[in-house]
């Protein structure tokens, strides 16, 4: 699944970045790599979402979030990473 399809309040592992290279580099510099855990804090129905990653919050547009592959993190481990 992609990050765009993710639900508010859940945590996910990143499994792949498929945005254009320039954006990928910036995301990597912000700490979004394979295996990084992100939590969806808020989202608009169709559009941008807010994630928590490495202790900070990022707002990502649909184009970016729909090109990030993620895998849901098991329940029960979401609170304490």
């Amino acid at each position: 699944m992609t990050l765009y399809e993710a639900d508010k309040g859940h945590s996910y592992y990143i499994t792949g970045l498929y945005v254009e290279p320039s954006v990928t580099r910036r995301l990597q510099a912000l700490g979004l790599n394979d295996g990084t855990v992100v939590k969806v804090l808020n989202r608009k129905k169709r559009g941008a979402l807010i994630i928590q990653v490495r202790g900070t919050r990022l707002a990502l547009g649909k184009h970016i979030s729909s090109n990030i592959e993620v895998k849901i993190k098991e329940e029960g481990t979401t609170e304490d990473e």
Binding site: L27, A48, I50, T56, R57, L58, A59, G61, H63, I64
Partner: peptide
């Protein structure tokens, strides 16, 4: 449509 927002929210 531009939807490539990327910004940190402090």
């Amino acid at each position: 449509v531009n939807d490539s927002l990327l910004i940190e929210l402090p």
